[in-house]
Design a protein around this nucleic acid. Structure first.
Lengths: 204, 204
DNA sequence: CGTTTGCTTGAATTCTGTCAAAGCAGGTGG
DNA sequence: CCACCTGCTTTGACAGAATTCAAGCAAACG
């Protein structure tokens, strides 16, 4: 199997970011950490480059050490953004990753982006060999479940205006680093409508 | 801690349902299964009774052996249904269960319902003691993640009419066993609008 | 039988999208 | 330095979609 990533190791700084993140959930021993680290591959994605294109099976999970990745779906010639992930977050189509089905989504970099990549077979192998990494996998799955469920419910219960206001307080990174027309489709509305909502909210 | 469940054991039939479900994901030994079974508590919920009320912390996970449970959210005096679970499914506010925060949702029985209940401490104890149940927890979390993510994306990308048509084929149980006005809020629309969609779809 | 509950329908209102045009900034080349 | 792109946001006018309110029906139930 051919990998296009660099084979160089993550820098100490990059490793530190991932280790801090990981240790919020589990406390690996040095051996366990070494096992985890042996699965890492470094990759750089230039601005507007792709981590995944719709139609491909998502064969890896990426931890972002720098930059931002946007998830989007194409329909009728338009692009609908479904999520954004920044440094210190994981980017993947976990559905496609787990089910080995082609993804309906594309992932492209909004900024020059550095990621640490874990391939499917390596992840499954970690799960099988180690109770600790099995546990880590559970905690990650629980975490992203909660995230997507909260967002789903917000889409149903909250008006676009409420969602936008919540974004201002909960997730200012998105407002600062993502073009407005992408935020609009993320909220399920048109860029035109978001513009009007902003005017209305600003006038308060 | 006081439990209101019966202390009687599940019937062989109920146990069989849960075991079949479980063995789709993991293959427990007899000892492991016994450990699992020791955590079970039986409970009956009458029609219109509650499994959980908004404001309470969800302290358990329920496997439904008979009946149907509806999840809903109250806002501005209206009820918005977010999910329905039937026999052979798990019912819980997994967000509240995991985070130990009060739930924003109520769970009530649409029909007389029998459930097998697992309490938080027992579940966590299973996770800690056994790699197999840790794995089971991961697979369950992955499964419900995929389910809620697909539903979220359907809410954004599909028109109410498309969603309704999909429901007809993918989930006829809901149409047969859930009142229409609850389905409407589940689809993010008003009962009036769903009625009009039905007329339109029927005319084809 | 009368009441309740839930579904349908019509009319008026509000919300949201479409289309087209204009503004605004940053970047580039002359 | 300026003129001109180009990509993004804002605005206005209009059309279509969805909600609200209110009335009418039908089936289910005590």
């Amino acid at each position: 199997m051919q990998h296009f990533e660099n084979t160089v190791l993550p820098s100490p700084e990059q490793l530190g970011m991932l280790r801090s993140f990981t240790e919020q959930l589990v406390k690996p021993s040095e051996d366990e950490w070494a096992e985890f680290a042996s699965c890492m591959r470094l990759k750089h994605i230039p601005k507007k480059g792709f981590f995944l294109r719709a139609g491909e099976v998502c064969s890896s999970v990426a931890f972002i050490t720098r930059g931002a990745i946007r998830y989007y779906h194409e329909k009728d010639g338009n692009e609908y953004s479904t999520n954004f992930t920044f440094e210190n977050g994981f980017a993947t189509d976990y559905d496609s990753f787990l089910t080995r089905q082609p993804s309906h989504y594309s992932f492209s970099a909004l900024e020059p982006t550095d990621i640490i990549v874990f391939h499917y077979n390596d992840v499954q192998s970690l799960y099988h060999r180690s109770k600790l990494w099995e546990r880590f996998g559970r905690l990650i799955a629980e975490r992203i479940f909660i995230e997507v469920q909260r967002r789903k419910n917000s889409l149903v219960f909250d008006s676009p205006e409420e969602q936008y206001c919540r974004l201002i307080t909960d997730c200012p990174k998105i407002l600062e680093r993502v073009p407005q027309h992408m935020i609009a489709t993320y909220l399920g509305i048109t860029p035109v409508h978001l513009s009007r909502i902003r005017r209305k909210v600003a006038g308060k």
